[in-house]
Amino acid sequence: MQQLLAPKNFYLWSGRWLRPVAWATGLCTLTGLYWGLVVAPPDYQQGDSYRIMFVHVPSAWMSLFVYAVMAGAGAVALVWRIKVAEVVASASAPIGAAFTALALMTGSLWGKPMWGTWWVWDARLTSELLLLFLYLGYMALEQAIEDRRTATRAAAVLALVGAVDLPIIHYSVEWWHTLHQAPTVTRFGAPAIHGSMLAPLLVMALAFFGYYVSLLLVRARCELLERERTNPWVGEVCRGIP
């Protein structure tokens, strides 16, 4: 574990894991798509439009999870100055922003036929939009500071401050009246969704998780190469010397 924190070791280790993770992700994606779009039955109230759930819900879950990873890695980077934590935080930001944007867009495409509106300013939707701005602010702040390590640390402070939005997003539907409905899967007791719909949802969630891990590894490796470009190991691994 300790050895993995050395940039070169992390680079080589992530190179070995990328391929299996990417394959598993592809398999989950195909399975989940077929299961969700073809096999799963229509919903008793919403018919077929509920199938948007299979991309909307995993995007929304991952938008929160990636932010938690980003803020956590940022905290580790601030306290222990570990390079691998710095690159994990910076590599996560664009991926998390993409998940958040997707959650908002697919939610809008679901809201129009079901609720009758593309967008409302209720607590759930507004706090998720705030999350998108937090990601964008993080990326802008990192761009604005020349020295990459300083930039990552400054952005980590922003990420930590913004982390207060995570519980707000999750509990918004319980604390306030919202148009968005209460959680289905993560509530106490049995999920309020039939097994034939829950299974493809979980497979798609796994696929989105695998997508995040694969992309995180690719982007973290890029960040490491950028930041360590003057270090001899970078030239060596790029030339294929083990």
Binding site: L33, L37, P42, G47, D48, S49, R51, I52, V55, H56, S59, P94, I95, A98, A101, L102, M105, T106, L109, W110, K112, P113, Y211, S214, L215, V218, R219, C222
Partner: peptide
């Protein structure tokens, strides 16, 4: 999709474009 094809396929389409785009640019 029971009449809501536009919404369902737009949602899956936008997800595919965004996710594949980010994957391509990262690689």
């Amino acid at each position: 999709m029971g009449g809501s094809g536009f919404y369902v396929w737009s949602a899956y389409g936008v997800a595919a474009v965004v996710m594949l785009g980010l994957l391509g640019s990262s690689l």
